[in-house]
Design a protein around this nucleic acid. Sequence first.
DNA 1: AAAAATATTGAACCGGTGGACAGGGTGGGC
DNA 2: GCCCACCCTGTCCACCGGTTCAATATTTTT
Lengths: 211, 211
Amino acid sequence: MMLAICPRAELLARWRKAFPEGRVLATIPRAPLTVAPSQLWLHADGIADPDLGRRVAALVAVCPGVPVVVISTAPNQYRALLALEAGASGFCHALAAPELMQQVATVVAHGGLWVGPELMKRMLGAVTARLDQGGGGSVADLSRLTPRERAVATEVSRGATNKEAARTLGITERTVKAHLAAVFEKFGVRDRLELVIALRDPLAAPARSVA
Amino acid sequence: MMLAICPRAELLARWRKAFPEGRVLATIPRAPLTVAPSQLWLHADGIADPDLGRRVAALVAVCPGVPVVVISTAPNQYRALLALEAGASGFCHALAAPELMQQVATVVAHGGLWVGPELMKRMLGAVTARLDQGGGGSVADLSRLTPRERAVATEVSRGATNKEAARTLGITERTVKAHLAAVFEKFGVRDRLELVIALRDPLAAPARSVA
DNA sequence: AAAAATATTGAACCGGTGGACAGGGTGGGC
DNA sequence: GCCCACCCTGTCCACCGGTTCAATATTTTT
């Protein structure tokens, strides 16, 4: 049995179309339900970011083993991640097509996880960026640098100023600048900030307008 | 129709039990198949790391729209990520229970993505670590900022200069500086570089010696 | 209504940053 | 020997970034 949780039932029009047999509760039940639902759909509108994780966690605690899907009329990646980390099995738009919702239901019913394509891409990028660590193909590949350039780039990417990097590396500030200039050139970035961004997130596109 | 790709058919014992109707090819077909399969299962044993991504990508290219699942007798997170990034829809153990394989098949057939629970956890951890840190009370929590401060912080953390941020937000450079100063104060960082580091990796300790 | 928080802007100051000129030293390959 | 890549350093200068004086208007909270 499908169970949706939403204080304002009119927000669930799409959901009701997808699951005509589904039932709706206004709030998160505190005690375990007598009849355990097969899935829980939580409408996240009106739940502030800091609370979203807690609400989802509460739901999971009340109905252990039951997949939780969070829906929202204003979804974003950040909230999706909050929900997923709290134990949700999926996150989709509250105004999504009923067919899509049914697909999501099928996937999570089988223990799968539903995330939108953009979020998936982002997650993959984030993780592989960590695993790779100079592993290949990315814009900012530390292995393309000379040892000294790499050392300077590392210091700077930790937040050090030129003077501090010079001190820790035992060279003059001027030399740090020289190495850094070479790094900028090789990576095609204009300053240390973009260097850090490139190093930490190779998939991130520069924000600046390429005029 | 299920289609498995594996040079040594004896490695597919479990898979055959899960999908008795499935067919097997020894190698990745070069031309599109006359009868498009509903799913493609690629056995990754014997494929080196650098090649795995290419093989999967090749499969996806040959059969566009068909979900690809990679199986292996020695699975690890890194290889799973390689496969997923190349466009695979799932990654599971070649010796998994046939019932599990059938579940995976159901999930990916509906456009879902199948990743093991450990990998999922890891991915979530990596992503949320750079978006915020999901836990509250951490150093750089964007929700602690006012909307305007957040907007400025976001622009800057993308690599924008003060001037650029001012332009995109429709305010003067001076106002950007004001908001930014407030952000620095709230997060306890001294400049935009540390802000980016704090936002993208809250666990990283500052490099500078607090003398 | 009073107080606090938020959003906006100005001028001036100074240190950090990056580019534009430089040049000298070392070690390896042709 | 010559060239090249790498490492190190110097000076000058325009620009950017962050802070320190401000001040005013709007919104929210108490």
